[in-house]
């Protein structure tokens, strides 16, 4: 038996909106730790890892570890039927082939349940080792989204370079080139407006902007985005989910032929 009650149902709505175009179907895993997912896009270039910790739920009952295969567009469609202020409860029976999403309005005057068929998904789970990154950039998530959107009007790829000068986002296309440099800016009035760059060594990597733009759909989840770069690893674009966990996007770089 599984029963997870999330007071801030809008979080789950936002999570689905941020991943449904990147990943078609995925297994949601539930254990004492929480509600999690790891999935790759169809071309295996990007990977998303989601964790919503059990402590973040108002009620969390998961009698045994369970993996539920869902088609994400269908799940997103059902969650769109929940109001932004609704409490969402996810329910499933052990060994069942359906999951139920229950939506309660804040004053309890409307209760809806939507039952969705589960599917069997053969997905490989990858081990993601803890790594030391050469550079970590923390910046307002809206600023990062703006940069990715602006650059994709010029080119298809972005070169992200971190030096002691700051972080530079560059692109090149048929009509010309673009460079956006953000300098460390820790002394702002609001901490969420700060750009903080931790650099151990300079690093420069090239990525497909199409994926970066897809990751920025998670912007409504967090004011701050953390971008971790290392020359030997996929970039990690992380959005923390208030008090609950995170959504991390991993993107394999483009490499010189």
């Amino acid at each position: 038996m599984l029963e997870l009650r999330l007071l801030q149902g809008s979080l789950l709505k936002k999570v689905l909106e941020s991943i449904k175009d990147l990943v078609t179907e995925a297994n949601f895993d539930c254990s004492a730790t929480g509600f999690s997912l790891q999935a790759m896009d169809s071309s295996h270039v990007a990977l998303v890892a989601l964790l919503l910790r059990s402590e973040g739920f108002e009620h969390f009952r998961c009698d045994r570890n369970i993996s539920m295969g869902m088609k994400l567009v269908n799940m997103a469609m059902m969650l769109k039927c929940a109001g932004n202020d609704d409490i969402i409860t996810i329910k499933a029976d052990d060994g069942g082939d359906t999951v139920t999403f229950m939506f309660e309005s804040p004053n309890q005057d409307k209760i809806a349940d939507f039952e969705m068929k589960l599917m069997n998904i053969d997905s490989e789970h990858l081990g993601i080792p803890e790594a030391e990154y050469q550079a970590i950039v923390r910046m307002p998530s809206s600023e990062f989204a703006r940069i990715c959107k602006d650059l994709s009007t010029i080119g298809d790829t972005v070169i992200i370079s971190v030096t002691k000068e700051g972080v530079k986002f560059s692109t090149k296309g048929d009509i010309g080139t673009a460079n956006i440099v953000c300098r460390q800016n820790a002394t702002v009035d609001k901490p969420e407006d700060a750009i903080i760059i931790e650099m151990k060594e300079p690093v420069s990597l090239t990525f497909a902007l199409r994926y970066m733009n897809s990751f920025t759909k998670a912007t409504p989840l967090a004011n701050i985005v953390t971008i971790s770069l290392s020359s030997e690893l996929p970039v990690v674009v992380e959005y923390k989910i208030a008090e609950m966990g995170y959504i991390r996007f991993y993107l394999a770089p483009k490499i010189e032929e």
Partner: peptide, 14 residues
């Protein structure tokens, strides 16, 4: 010219 690498080039199956 740049080639797109894949996640499995970096992370292996659990």
């Amino acid at each position: 010219h740049c080639l797109q690498s894949r996640i499995s080039d970096y992370f292996s199956r659990d």
